[in-house]
Deep mutational scan, measured.
Amino acid sequence: MSRVPSPPPPAEMSSGPVAESWCYTQIKVVKFSYMWTINNFSFCREEMGEVIKSSTFSSGANDKLKWCLRVNPKGLDEESKDYLSLYLLLVSCPKSEVRAKFKFSILNAKGEETKAMESQRAYRFVQGKDWGFKKFIRRDFLLDEANGLLPDDKLTLFCEVSVVQDSVNISGQNTMNMVKVPECRLADELGGLWENSRFTDCCLCVAGQEFQAHKAILAARSPVFSAMFEHEMEESKKNRVEINDVEPEVFKEMMCFIYTGKAPNLDKMADDLLAAADKYALERLKVMCEDALCSNLSVENAAEILILADLHSADQLKTQAVDFINYHASDVLETSGWKSMVVSHPHLVAEAYRSLASAQCPFLGPPRKRLKQS
């Protein structure tokens, strides 16, 4: 649940008159999402009104509101027999009622949201009550392989729920002597030191190019640089560091992050930047690179990204790559990247197969709970 924001200063709310007192009302909304995959969808019983329910879910471990999704594969009634019906059901509720908006969509073979439908307002739910769409999607369109909505005969539904909580009022009075504290510009100011090479005390040599930097900042941000300058190493004695395995453009992006906490060109060089972040123990930059690479996972590059993640101990990226390969196994196994990995990294192939087997055979063990970014 997000923290209630402070109200904007009255002088910034309007260029008009300023009242002596004010009130700011925040209506709290808890948002969460749920993904439900139905394997072997074409084998569902086709009687009209037949119901399939998901397991229950909530916004978190401490949330007492429990929900589930309900599907009628062949419609709810005679009117909707040519459609799939989809509903959000409130299973248990400690209150007399709650209000919530919802959005349903289908994830296609690429994991993209399609055929989205959402409620136009927050509906009133009581325990045992459901709301949804009797005519969510035509069955003939859903079952047509050309539309790519049932890869490997799996129907994957994605649901986003927004639950309306209580409202909170914050009130106060205006004073004539309003003090406005300026925003912190530390990142910009440190970035200026790097860009202008002011007050530098060490030189970093990268592929024949020299960059002036500040030992204190490098040591504070990177345990690797800290070790170089702290001990009686040649880098500490000469205040000069030779860097041979990072390209200059990648190095500059890494230094921008060290000084400012930002990497504006990360998406263009996420793979190389991940390697640099791993070498210099820049954990936050490493996770930022993992996130960017996750966003660009595809059938063509899944094997290469899995190898990269394994090489640099990028655990979150590795998990996402394995899950992606499992979901698109029939396509990924035909790529040149996968065939190369079979020869060069057989242990990763074995890991992917083990994960695929456990996903398809849940009876082999208890269900695993899916539970950071600093």
Rank of each mutant, 00 (worst) to 15 (best):
M117I: 05
L218H: 00
M48F: 06
A122P: 05
V349C: 10
S167A: 04
D315K: 06
A281N: 05
N196R: 02
V343T: 05
G192A: 08
L218S: 00
L89Q: 10
A303Q: 00
E283K: 04
M228P: 15
A292G: 03
R284T: 09
V29I: 04
D291S: 10
F133L: 11
S21V: 12
S336G: 02
K110I: 12
P7T: 06
Q120I: 08
Y327M: 03
R70V: 11
G365P: 13
F199R: 14
K103G: 13
L157D: 00
Y34S: 05
F199N: 14
K215C: 15
S222K: 00
V29W: 06
D278Q: 08
A11P: 06
E189S: 13
E249F: 04
N72Q: 10
A321M: 13
S119Q: 00
F125G: 03
R185V: 03
G128N: 11
M48S: 02
Y353F: 09
S355P: 08
P346C: 08
E118Q: 09
R284I: 05
L89G: 01
A187R: 02
T260V: 06
I38N: 04
I137A: 14
A263Q: 03
K262M: 02
D63L: 06
P8D: 04
A116P: 03
E78L: 11
V18K: 10
A329H: 01
P366H: 08
V98K: 15
E334P: 11
G365W: 12
Q120R: 04
I38Y: 06
V91F: 13
P9T: 04
V126H: 07
L282D: 03
E113R: 06
D245R: 12
I106P: 13
N326T: 11
K53E: 06
S330P: 06
S58Q: 06
S313E: 13
G191S: 09
L76P: 15
D82K: 08
M254Y: 03
E230K: 07
L142F: 03
P5C: 06
L190F: 10
K372T: 04
V224C: 14
S42N: 01
E249G: 04
V181L: 04
I27W: 11
R138M: 10
I325R: 00
S336Q: 02
S171A: 02
E334W: 03
N108V: 12
R138T: 10
N177Y: 04
A277K: 00
S313G: 02
N177F: 04
S171Y: 05
S162G: 11
P10D: 04
A292T: 09
S226A: 15
S336V: 12
N169M: 04
K369L: 06
L273Q: 04
M1W: 00
M178R: 03
R368T: 14
N296M: 11
